[in-house]
Nucleic acid binder design. Structure first.
Lengths: 340, 340
DNA sequence: TTGTATGCGTTATCAC
DNA sequence: GTGATAACGCATACAA
């Protein structure tokens, strides 16, 4: 069985394709009687228009692309879920691609999506993205896009982010207020903007409280195995600093959980001997023991904001106006649990 | 800037569209000189063919659909990741939809995808799907699809599943061998095939070891808040049976983790006083304390199998052959950790 | 070796 | 109120 087409409907009814089309679209210049016949038959035959033909004709696809570094990730999958839900409710479909933190792949995927003719794109950059010709290309072709979470500040586009610096600042300030003095930081690689900003927030909080920054307390965890990295660096830290460190602020929850894992296995009490503060508020962080204090970063809210901004941009483009290039900053808050 | 078309290339070169098209497709009946000119110009102008036009012309879209009950879920997101990766490597795009365990939505999404003209579909049914006209419709329109994980046995299609019954049987048998005698079961709702089969495996293992099935030890957890459900039913169980129960086998890890949470908060020692055996091997299960024994169910492997079978079906259809309707059973194994 | 013509399914313009 | 017809961009059978 093949999908029924306008032509077949028209033939069956003994009228022209044009009339059928107009009847379906509710044009006023078609007689009620004809409209009724058309509607009945299309209903009966379960007609649904061919998307490719519409895309070709109307030059839009009603689909948007989403490129994300990793899908199996509590935060990102929440983002994706929100995007898909809202897109679906507006009859947009979403094509999901995973860059795998691989810049070349990311570039290829943008091109793929471009040739596919998506109506818009939501993208979170890989950790290794340092050139932006692929994003420029989107601009050249006038494809609306919004960067989320891991963004490039120098590319002009709409953005949805959290204020990483401020969030980190707040977390570390909280630790200091609580009386912790020697606070280590487990950061990610040198490149991702997130990692930089969270580090900067950490640094600023120390400065503002007259605690000198000790570079030997900053551990770079960048081999993409966060849990193991957390264990590894916790061990390293204890070797290098004994039990003098009284708190750690980690760039994400997984690293924190790895560290907690190490401390528990080595009978180091949390938070008595060392406090641990994470970042993201993964579901997991409320389930492990001790429950992790962390920065709450809500994926659903970010996803929702992203798709809404994207729709605004699409709307805007349709109206012939220039891109909005707005930046939405999502609120974060501190979730204090047992680990601090 | 608009994407360049064949027509423009042809005009620029002073040749016909047909020749350009053929040159690009590597047909032999075009002179090397012409081909070279075409290739150079398309390269320079960054030509990439319009997907809608190709879809319309060739009656395929090079995209497949995926419908999943919940995206934010370790197992399913692993499945999705694997599907996307392999699809991407074969230049197929994937449209992802979430049914949210909602049957009406699932139906609507199948129709949406159908009118979109996907080349194939991978679907995992919602817990509330009990009629299958939407799947039949896929068959009517001859759209290859494969059911995964949560499937309907009565719908004929390719399937990728695990042997839930056997896996559950093995888990419970292990518990019995270990000496546990009064083994409770936290199951999911009455409908999903998974839940039924795991229950059946549990039951069979008891029978084969001459342990009478005690219906009061089977708890139905079906309000979609697994962690809380685990806590709630653990409490209920203790109230009803005191400390006479010495093990629980749960239909998924989240439920197990909820139960563990309750036991720890109430100073019930695991596994000394009660053992807990989960199902799925979520990442989390190796990170909590005590580490959870569980059935390992690998999402990547299932995703990979699903997309490969789907491609086989697509290939098959293209060759004009009838659907394969093959069933792939993915191996599971027991991961024994600290909770048993 | 190249070009012409046709059709994929739909929409929109314009004539009737 | 209805119907040809062209166009969207591409691929292909056939003619030249």
């Amino acid at each position: 069985m093949r999908p029924v087409t306008l032509k077949e409907i028209a033939k069956e009814l003994g009228i022209s394709v044009a009339t059928v089309s107009k009847a379906l679209k509710g044009y006023q210049d078609v007689s009620p009687k004809t409209r009724k016949r058309v509607l009945e038959l299309t209903e009966k035959l379960n007609y649904s228009p061919n998307t490719a033909a519409i895309s070709l004709r109307k030059q839009h696809t009603k689909t948007i692309g989403v490129i994300i570094p990793t899908i199996v990730h509590y935060f990102f999958s929440s983002v994706i879920e929100a995007i898909i839900k809202i897109a679906d409710s507006k009859d947009y479909l979403v094509i999901l691609l995973q860059s795998d933190e691989n810049f070349e792949l990311e570039k290829k995927q943008v091109n793929l999506l471009l040739s596919k003719g998506i109506d818009g794109l939501i993208i979170s950059l890989s950790n290794h993205t340092r050139t932006y010709t692929h994003l420029k290309k989107l601009q050249d072709y006038n494809v609306p896009f919004v960067q989320i979470d891991k963004i490039s500040k120098i590319v002009h586009s709409s953005k949805v982010i959290i204020d990483d610096r401020k969030a980190a600042y707040n977390a570390v300030s909280y630790l200091i207020e609580k009386g912790y003095k020697k606070i280590a930081h487990f950061r990610a690689g040198l490149n991702p903007q997130n990692s930089i900003d969270r580090y900067l927030g950490y640094k600023k909080a120390l400065e503002d409280n007259d605690i000198p920054l000790d570079p030997s307390l900053v551990y770079i965890c960048d081999n993409n195995r966060d849990f193991e990295d957390g264990i590894f660096n916790a061990e390293k830290m204890i070797k290098e600093h004994g039990n003098s460190v009284d708190a750690i602020f980690t760039v994400n929850d997984m690293l924190a959980i790895g560290a907690i894992h190490y401390f528990r296995n080595n009978d180091i009490k949390i938070p008595e001997e060392i406090a641990v503060f994470g970042f993201s508020n993964w579901f997991m962080s409320s389930v492990i023991s001790p429950k992790l204090s962390t920065v709450n970063q809500d994926g659903s809210i970010m996803g929702e904001a992203a798709i809404n901004v994207l729709f605004e941009e699409i709307e805007n483009k349709r109206a012939g106006k220039p891109a909005l290039n707005k930046t939405v900053v999502i609120d974060t808050d501190l979730v204090i649990r047992e680990s601090t």
